[in-house]
Amino acid sequence: MRIELADLCKKFDGTSVLKGLDFDDDVTTLAIIGPSGGGKSTLLRILGGLTAPTSGTVRVDGETVSYDEATLPAYRAKLGFVFQQGGLFQHLSAVENIAMPLREVHGVEASAAEQTARELLDRFGLAEDAEKRPAQLSGGQQQRVAIARAVAGRPRLLLLDEPTSALDPAYTNDVLDMIDDLREDGMRFVIVTHEMGFARNACEKCAFLSQGRLLEYGESSKLFAHPSTPELRAFLDKLLEWR
């Protein structure tokens, strides 16, 4: 899927979070890495149609995204978005969290929506938790249900905003395994992550974002082996300090 960004800027109350990003490539699996506050989540939210850029354009498969509340729901419906935490509807069971958007947004008939939801939960080892509400699930289970919900509508791209940052290490692997599983099925995704092993080995491309600028972009294997900017080198060195 082709993603083009042209001079993309975002300011929050006068503070520049994204300072003119340019990007043009076919995205299959992309990891966005970088220090906290570098603009990673903001970029992902703009891609997901959840935040409007201050200036600049976003084009997806040749079509310019119009950040207009009237057209955005249809744009968002074609994407799957996974939040860091708390993204499940608290008042709905796991199965309803998946089935409700299928019915209400994708116009799937009720019984078919429930069947799809149960099949997904079954596939990802969550069948026993189908009737539980988010508060009754562990953090890792919640994230896996959230990913199942995000892929239920057969999105053209999955966007994951630090899906494992709020999890215990044991749960982190469950979630990353699930994403890798989806990748093998051909699911395209963009993930903001601090899991460098995952970014390096499971994502084809990697983008390094620091202080609102896209400092490096390329194939993950090359980017990690030969960082060309001092910023990325410092970032990676810091991460490896306690390894």
């Binding site: 997901g48 149609g49 959840l50 509340e69 955005l72 729901p73 249809a74 968002r76 419906a77 074609k78 994407l79 978005f81 939040f83 935490q85 708390g86 993204g87 499940l88 509807f89 608290q90 008042h91 409700m100 958007p101 209400e104 947004v105 994708h106 919900r149 509508g153």
Partner: peptide, 29 residues
């Protein structure tokens, strides 16, 4: 939680659907 509204938007619900399917049921509860 603001994330509940975000999640509703992310799955593609319109504003009216968000109120009817997410905000109101949670408020009643």
């Amino acid at each position: 939680d603001e994330t509940q509204r975000d999640a509703a938007r992310a799955v593609g619900l319109t504003h009216a659907q968000t109120v009817r399917l997410v905000i109101l049921p949670q408020m009643v509860a």
